[in-house]
Design a protein around this nucleic acid. Structure first.
Lengths: 316, 316
DNA sequence: CGCGTTTACGCCTCACGTAAACATC
DNA sequence: GATGTTTACGTGAGGCGTAAACGCG
């Protein structure tokens, strides 16, 4: 029995498949499989039931899982015991939304690099829905997404909120909400995004009906479509500020306001590695828990005809 | 960092030298040294101070030692968790006195073989004094010896007692104690034996003076010398019974009685492996805690001229 | 046929022991 | 010189990845 075997077993037991666990461990599926087989031989008991389609934990495996976790934690403590540094190291896969990727994420990465140079933070941008799945499957260690997770096995730590503002191109006639929704398509992020539920709630509570939707998977593209007058929609308030200031779009503050979207850090239940606590501390310093999310890397969505002007720091 | 490295470190840190630790781990000193060096590299801290003659634990090593022990214990628990058997396995070096080796030890070995077939019990016969040293140095896992250990770092569990009886050859004149001690040498085990202190206490408390000593390192030899009339001395009561019955020696019950000798199982402090608990359980069933030690393998010290007659089961 | 896991096999690293060197008493 | 630890080095087992096979939907 080795620590490597126990680690392999733990992740294989908690991830959706051996493939995910192997990827996380920087290991081929084959080697992972063998490590587990060796552990089973060493312990003299089957930990996985391979009779069905997917390998499932046996009762013995179930019993071993938390003990293995405890042992690994203890080993981790030991590693940190003698280090003068914070002991936070290794790789952490962090799922974030696109909004986060362009707002507080750079600051978080910079802070992490400064505080924990040994920590390799790997942000992956995806929609809230996908993040949930990938978190649960074990692809991510944690994720920052809107709302609270409905899934068991995922813990949520509230982390801040974002506000949104309805906007339209300046040259469009200023219609009332329902009229506008009837005339132009509603430009939004796809269904899986964190804003989806917030939007549906808003539509439902005011009784509006959407006639046409135009979805695009990045805020940059959405902003471009809105500035072009292709349709109407909303943008993250702070993110839209420069675009609004330059007149690229017009805020429709006469329309009913959208509610704030609360974000939360989601962590896999039972995963209490020190590195996650450290990440929470970093996030607490990066994202103000009470205030709306601050926008650090000011985006520069292109007003028509300004292409090529990069003085605002826009990075496509 | 691996479990093997931690195990190597723990034993190197608690044994008297790397050589002893290596021997215990079935490892060459070279490999042990490398394991520890690798652990130090992995942890990024020196665990041993090699500046002096002997490697000594650094403060960091001191701090790590109990944590490593805890981790190894936990790992041991994990191994036992899924086993249907008692989980008691491995090798256990047990120091015993000669008396034990000829009395309850065979029964203990048989019981151990029955209860814990995976356990390799390695009894080593030595004197009480040497046992203490070898226990402390790490050569033994535990030892059964007379009295209570004066050494820190060794725990004692009381385990039974043995009584002794003064004897002399039948053909010798029946003198009073001091007269006998003046005329014949006192035949005893060497200084290091468990009976040494008991004898000295007896001599001191009665004010007797020994004029000549004749030491020999086995009870069998002592009994032979006594039967031959070379000198006077004492024998373990039960062990001497057959010899007394055959008239090989004569009990001198008119002499002041020797006090009982209490035996104790000694274990290295901090070593709380399950295998030691199991051994204590075995010993409790083998040796009656209240009664004097029972003699299982009846010895047959040779009355003069009876050499060759082995009907009494004597094994030289 | 796709997905998930294991087996086969060649490769290479790593951990071992022997023997010598080094260091300390 | 004796004792204790490390270094050098040749050897063998074990863990790795690629690729093929297997088993289940």
């Amino acid at each position: 029995m080795t620590l490597k075997q126990l680690e392999a077993f733990f992740w294989a037991g908690t991830c959706a498949s051996f493939a995910v666990a192997a990827e996380r461990l920087h290991l081929s599926v084959s080697s992972l499989s063998k490590r587990i087989a060796e552990l089973e031989t060493s312990l003299g008991a089957a930990l996985f039931d391979r009779q069905h389609y997917r390998a499932a934990l046996t009762p013995a495996g179930m019993a071993l899982l938390p003990r293995a976790r405890a042992l690994l934690d203890e080993a981790e403590d030991l590693r940190g015991l003698l280090r003068q540094d914070t002991g936070v190291c290794g790789r952490l896969r962090l799922g974030v939304g696109e909004l986060a990727s362009q707002t507080w994420l750079p600051k978080l990465m910079a802070l992490a690099a400064e505080r924990h140079p040994q920590l390799v933070l790997e942000p992956v941008v995806d929609t809230g829905e996908q993040m949930e799945l990938r978190l649960e499957s074990g692809e991510f260690d944690c994720a920052v997404a809107a709302g609270c997770s409905a899934r068991a096995g995922v813990l949520s730590y509230p982390m801040g909120r974002a506000d949104f503002v309805w906007v339209a191109a300046p040259h469009l006639p200023r219609l009332a909400v329902q009229d506008a929704l009837s005339r132009w398509p509603l430009v939004t992020l796809p269904q899986g995004a964190g804003t989806h539920h917030m939007l549906e709630d808003w539509l439902l509570s005011h009784g509006y009906v959407v006639h046409r939707r135009l979805t695009c998977n990045t805020w940059g593209a959405v902003a471009g479509l809105l500035a072009e007058g292709i349709g109407i929609g909303f943008l993250p308030q702070g993110w839209a500020t420069p675009l609004l200031a330059r007149g690229g779009v017009l805020a429709r503050e006469d329309w009913p306001a959208l509610s704030s979207l609360r974000y939360a850090l989601r962590v896999r239940q039972g995963d209490e590695r020190a590195v996650l606590t450290a990440l929470r501390a970093l996030l607490a310093q990066t994202v103000d828990f009470a205030e709306p999310i601050r926008f650090l890397a000011l985006p520069g969505p292109w007003p028509a005809g300004e292409a090529g002007q990069r003085q605002d720091g826009f990075c496509p």
